[in-house]
């Protein structure tokens, strides 16, 4: 049994801004910190709205970037874990956890 987040949602207090083709900036919720994300990551961060599933996000990433579906999904799960550990995801994702 491992928790799974099907519809991840960024923290509602986070602010973010894509910048050109270089990536983008994210302001961490409740912290006076700014995080720099690469182009794929800022694209994903924008899709973490609680309405896009992991599969839909991977569809978008594989459409925009030269990466296999397997790699994209693995990277996505890793990225989401990273965001969760830094308090950058909303509780909404956790509320939709499923048991596998």
């Amino acid at each position: 049994m491992s928790p799974r987040i099907d519809y991840p949602q960024r923290h509602p207090d986070s602010s973010f801004r894509p910048i050109g083709d270089e990536g983008g900036l994210v302001v961490l919720p409740g912290k006076a910190e700014v995080k720099v994300l690469n182009p794929a990551a800022i694209t994903i961060f924008g899709l973490l709205d609680g309405a896009h599933s992991l599969d839909q996000i991977v569809d978008k990433v594989t459409g925009d970037f030269d990466v296999s579906r397997e790699t994209a999904m693995a990277d996505l799960r890793s990225f989401i874990g990273e965001l969760a550990s830094q308090g950058m995801l909303a509780g909404g994702g956790a509320e939709r956890q499923e048991q596998t």
């Binding site: 910048i19 270089e22 990536g23 983008g24 900036l25 700014v34 995080k35 720099v36 994300l37 690469n38 794929a40 990551a41 994903i44 961060f45 990277d75 996505l76 890793s78 990225f79 990273e82 965001l83």
Partner: peptide
């Protein structure tokens, strides 16, 4: 995927 090049240099580059 996400946490790349953190620190002042990455931020400065973005700015």
């Amino acid at each position: 995927m996400g946490d790349q090049g953190q620190g002042k240099t990455a931020y400065r580059s973005m700015v």
